[in-house]
Amino acid sequence: MSVKKKVLMVCLGNICRSPIAEAVFADFIRRKKLYDIWEVHSAALIGYHTGKGPDHRAMTTIEKHGITDYTHQARPITTNDFHNFDWIFGMDEDNIRELERLRPNNSSAVIELLGSYDPEEERIIRDPYYDTDIQGFEKAYIQCVRSVAAFLEKHKY
């Protein structure tokens, strides 16, 4: 048996996009029975929401799509994350710049936009945090589904 590949989803606060991306990836792991191959977590670039659960609109969105067992508490990214994860996905260009700035010199983690795998080429995962409704969360969810599916297809083991 090979060593699990580890993925970290990152956004600014770890309560909207990165938890949606983590829940989507975990759902693929569960449905495709890839427990022995993949592991996924998420983290924030800032500690403002540390310890909080995902935004209620994010939870409503993933639950609407049948992901009903997801639990999460926001946490900030750590230096160890850059050594413990094989891929670290940012949701937008600002996330990528900050991840590159924080990356230790000896980190081998691949830092990429999750949306770089989107077959519809929507590279930036929609940030719905300041929206007054749920449509932006639905958009982010759909983008994550497309991107995670394409990533897993590309990286079959």
Results as ranks from 00 to 15, higher is better:
Glu120His: 14
Ile124Asn: 10
Pro128Thr: 03
Ala58Ile: 07
Leu34Met: 14
Ser107Asp: 11
His65Ala: 02
Trp38Lys: 09
Ile111Asp: 05
Asp55His: 15
Ile125Lys: 02
Arg75Phe: 09
Trp87Leu: 08
Asn106Leu: 06
Ala140Asn: 06
Lys32Gly: 01
Thr71Val: 14
Ile67Gln: 04
Ala21Thr: 01
Thr79Ser: 09
Ala140Leu: 10
Arg101Gln: 12
Gly47Met: 04
Asp69Thr: 13
Ser147Trp: 10
Asn80Trp: 06
His41Ser: 15
Asp81Lys: 08
Pro128Arg: 10
Asp131Gln: 11
Ile125Tyr: 14
Asp118Thr: 00
Cys144Arg: 02
Asp94Phe: 14
His49Ile: 00
Val145Phe: 10
Thr132His: 13
Leu12Ser: 06
Thr79Glu: 15
Glu120Phe: 13
Ala109His: 11
Lys64Glu: 14
Glu112Cys: 07
Glu100Asp: 11
Asp86Val: 01
Thr61Trp: 12
Lys52Met: 14
Gly136Met: 07
Asp81Val: 00
Val3Ser: 11
Leu45Phe: 12
Met1Ala: 11
Phe28Gln: 05
Ile111Arg: 10
Ile77Pro: 06
Gly136Leu: 07
Asp131Lys: 04
Ala109Met: 06
Asp127Gln: 04
Val3Met: 15
Thr61Ile: 08
Lys156Asp: 06
Gly90Leu: 03
Arg123Asn: 10
Lys139Glu: 15
Glu122Arg: 14
Ala149Tyr: 05
Ala26Tyr: 02
Tyr130Ala: 06
Val7Asp: 06
Lys6Val: 01
Ile88Gln: 03
Thr78Gly: 04
Arg126Ser: 08
Ala109Val: 07
Leu102Phe: 03
Cys16Tyr: 07
Thr79Trp: 02
Gln135Arg: 13
Val24Met: 08
Arg31Met: 10
Gly51Pro: 09
Ile88Met: 11
Glu112Phe: 03
Asp118Arg: 02
Thr68Asp: 12
Thr61Gln: 03
Gly51Cys: 09
Arg146Val: 08
Ala58Gly: 09
Tyr48Pro: 04
Leu45Trp: 12
Ile62Lys: 08
Asp92Thr: 04
Gly53Phe: 01
Gly47Ile: 02
Asp92Gly: 00
Ala43Cys: 06
Glu122Lys: 15
Ala149Asp: 15
Ala140Phe: 08
Asp69Ile: 03
Gly136His: 12
Thr61Glu: 10
Trp38Thr: 04
Gly115Tyr: 11
Ser107Gly: 03
Glu93Phe: 13
Asp94His: 14
Thr68Gln: 13
Ala44Leu: 05
Asp127Leu: 05
Phe25Ile: 01
Thr78Cys: 05
His65Leu: 00
Gly90Ala: 07
Val110Ser: 12
Tyr35Arg: 12
Val3His: 07
Pro76Lys: 15
Tyr141Pro: 00
Pro119Thr: 11
Lys5Tyr: 10
Pro128Asp: 07
Gly66His: 09
Asp131Thr: 00
Ser42Phe: 02
Asn80Cys: 05
Arg97Ala: 14
Thr50Cys: 11
Arg101Asn: 15
Ala74Arg: 07
Ile111Met: 12
Glu121Gln: 15
Tyr141Ile: 01
Tyr48Arg: 07
Ser2Ile: 13
Tyr35Thr: 03
Thr68Met: 09
Tyr130Met: 08
Ala74Asp: 04
Ala43Leu: 12
Ile62His: 00
Gly66Met: 08
Leu8Arg: 04
His65Asn: 13
Asp69Pro: 10
Asp27Gln: 14
Thr60Ile: 01
Val148Tyr: 09
Pro19Thr: 01
Pro76Gly: 11
His83Thr: 01
Thr132Val: 08
Asn106Gln: 11
Ile88Trp: 12
Asp133Thr: 15
Tyr129Gly: 01
Glu153His: 11
